[in-house]
């Protein structure tokens, strides 16, 4: 046996990478909260009107008087055994995140599908328009402007606008909140549509621009000229030669964005629509400078990013024979 199977080396490589990433990100997050002002957890735990003695007691009780690395290790132990407790609310963080996840998963899955479809559609239309006459090129520029507006629209503004007009004024959609899918599928859907639209607007604009540029690049490739010279139909040239190659960069982009939103990355949207998801939890914990939930959510995001990037690499390798897994 000279060398291991390439899939095995790939898997081992990624596992090692994951451990390193989790370690690095956790140390960094931990250290940041050690140095920022007003970050002392003992003050928070002891309450607003605590005496110096009470604070001291808390410090000893929770082990904040021990060396940093001991505190770090203990935090890690608690995280990985699922026993980590929030400093400000004294609830189990892992259990809390478990309760928040369904909302975030609902948001991520729905929105990511929508933004992918919208982004690809707009990108293809833009690229096709850009190669036509003067009027079409003007339409393409208009699309570009719309996309730029979507990209630069702040989530809280867009979400509030949607809520105000479609929820508060027209009563088409509920005013935020989350209804579990298992309890009330229709209620779930009506509650999710506005958040989905809100996230989709943010991402679709960006995706459409990336894909448009990618398609225009690909159309200039000489294998596309070869395809035309073969006498196959323009639609076939577009689908099997242009699109297939242009979509390759979108795949990895999508995987990473999916991971980020799933790891609570859409915290503004979640907060505006009061979804009570992981992102909202992260936002609230940050406001309270509550280290344990922030640590767990950061590590969860890092974990998801590594996993999803591995998955997108596998998909890339399946789509593009030139890509080698490593």
């Amino acid at each position: 046996m000279r060398a291991a199977h390439p899939m095995l080396t790939f898997a081992v490589r990624r596992l090692v990478a994951m451990v390193l990433v989790l370690f690095a990100i956790s140390v960094l997050t931990f250290l940041i909260f050690q140095v920022i002002p007003d970050g002392d957890p003992a003050l928070r735990l002891a309450g607003k009107f605590a005496t110096p003695q009470e604070i001291k007691d808390v410090r000893i009780q929770w082990g904040f008087n021990q060396p940093i690395w001991v505190q770090y290790l203990r935090m890690m132990e608690q995280i990985f055994t699922g026993k980590v407790i929030s400093y400000t609310q004294q609830v189990n963080v892992v259990r809390q995140i478990g309760e928040d996840l369904p909302a975030t998963i609902s948001l991520t899955v729905g929105a990511s599908v929508l933004w992918l479809i919208a982004g690809v559609a707009l990108g293809v239309v833009g690229a096709l328009l850009a190669r036509r006459g003067r009027v079409a090129r003007a339409a393409d520029r208009l699309l570009g402007a719309v996309a730029m507006t979507g990209i630069s629209m702040p989530a809280f503004l867009l979400g509030d606008l949607l809520l105000f007009y479609l929820g508060f004024k027209l009563h088409v959609f509920p005013l935020g909140g989350y209804v579990p899918l298992t309890e009330d599928p229709v209620g779930w859907l009506t509650h999710m549509i506005l958040p989905w639209i809100s996230v989709t607007v943010l991402f679709a604009g960006f995706y459409s621009r990336v894909l448009r540029a990618s398609i225009l690049d690909t159309m200039g490739e000489s294998y596309v000229a070869t395809a035309r010279a073969k006498g196959i139909s323009p639609r076939r040239v577009m689908v099997s030669h242009v699109l297939r190659n242009s979509l390759l960069p979108i795949v990895s982009l999508w995987g990473l964005d999916f991971a980020a939103v799933l790891g609570g990355g859409a915290l503004l949207t979640e907060t505006v629509f009061n979804l009570k998801g992981v992102g909202q939890y992260a936002a609230e914990s940050t406001q309270r400078l509550d280290i344990p939930p922030i640590m767990v959510i950061t590590m969860l995001t890092a974990f998801l990013v590594v996993v999803l990037s591995t998955v997108t690499d596998l998909v890339q390798a399946a789509l593009d024979p030139r890509v080698r897994l490593r």
Binding site: D217, T218, P249, R322
Partner: peptide
């Protein structure tokens, strides 16, 4: 002999050497 030219706007991490072959 790996990817070069040929419309590779691929993420760079895709095209590195394979450690399979010794």
């Amino acid at each position: 002999a790996g990817p070069r030219g040929g419309g590779s706007r691929l993420p760079s991490r895709g095209g590195g050497p394979s450690r399979r072959a010794r």
